[in-house]
Amino acid sequence: MLYRLMKYVLLGPLLRLLWPTKVTGLEHIPRMGGAILASNHLAVADSFFMPLYVKRRVTFPAKQEYFTEKGLKGRLKKWFFTGVGQFPIDRSGGSAAQAAIDTAIRLLREGRLLGIYPEGTRSPDGRLYKGKTGVARIALEARVPVVPVVMIGTERVNPIGSKLWRPRKLEIRFGEPLDFSRYDGLSGDRFVERSITDEIMYALMELSGQEYVDVYAAKAKELLAAEEAGVRPAVPAQPGALDRARLPETKAG
């Protein structure tokens, strides 16, 4: 009820009015059953605009801090992020990461749509960074398709560090679903999970036209911060790095 109120009455109409968005490929989203919407991640705004144009409810994992802050501000944050379809995850350690994966698998097996950012965090400079293999493990365990999604222009709506959103025209592209059923039973195989993740990132690169960097975004942020402090060089661009990372088409035995 709260989700529908936010999407159709309170937040949705305002977002549509101030940020006109071109959306293509909605037909690629399954009409029922579990599926992963794997997206690039340019800004906080991504989690608001993408679900707005999907008829089904999209659930996103979000930082636990959004739900645990004390006081009136904390209660308002919890109400808001719950209302836009997000659920809390603890990102503090290995067991917490497994708990987040388990929750995602459970939601998918219940037939829900799950939004995931394989990069793990926002891109620091608009380029596409190396994906984390959690998305592959979730897809294999839940046995669901992965729909690549790209957001275009959201980094100009709320650049990193900005508090006010700026009116801009946006674009959202949904790609054809990726089917990894040929790898059923191979969850936990690091090579398979890395290959699947790279295929997802390749699809995002082709769909978005972003330059790819074969480094995790979190590490890139550390290096860029160090560069600003005059300590280390920035992350070098590696366009085309995924051209050699596509999965073989043969069925795993």
Rank of each mutant, 00 (worst) to 15 (best):
L223E: 06
H41P: 03
V144W: 08
A245V: 00
L52Q: 08
V235W: 00
K251P: 02
Q86E: 04
S95I: 08
K169G: 04
V146H: 06
Y183A: 12
L224F: 11
L242T: 08
L223Y: 07
L247W: 09
V192E: 13
V213I: 06
P61T: 09
V58C: 04
D125T: 09
G115V: 01
S92I: 13
W19Q: 07
P30N: 15
G111H: 06
L178Q: 04
A97R: 02
R166M: 13
L128I: 11
G240D: 14
W165M: 15
E69K: 02
G120I: 02
S181A: 05
K132N: 06
D184A: 09
A252S: 14
L18D: 07
A100G: 13
K70E: 00
M205Y: 13
S39F: 12
G12C: 10
E141I: 01
L207W: 07
G175L: 08
F81N: 04
A225D: 11
G253D: 14
A38R: 01
R4H: 06
R156S: 02
M50K: 01
G209C: 11
L18I: 14
P118G: 06
P20L: 04
S208H: 04
A35K: 03
K132V: 00
P88R: 01
F87G: 04
G111K: 06
Y117I: 07
I172D: 03
M201L: 09
A252G: 09
S47M: 14
V147H: 04
G12M: 11
D179F: 10
G74P: 01
R168C: 01
V144F: 08
A220Y: 05
R173L: 06
W79D: 08
V58W: 00
E171S: 13
F191L: 13
A220S: 09
G230H: 10
P148S: 10
L5D: 05
R194W: 03
F48W: 15
M151L: 13
V235E: 00
S92G: 14
D125M: 07
D102I: 07
S208P: 02
L17I: 10
K251Q: 09
Y212Q: 09
D125I: 08
K78G: 05
P145S: 05
Q238W: 05
V135S: 03
G25V: 02
L224I: 15
I152E: 14
L114E: 08
L18R: 15
G188C: 14
E227M: 13
E227S: 15
R156M: 02
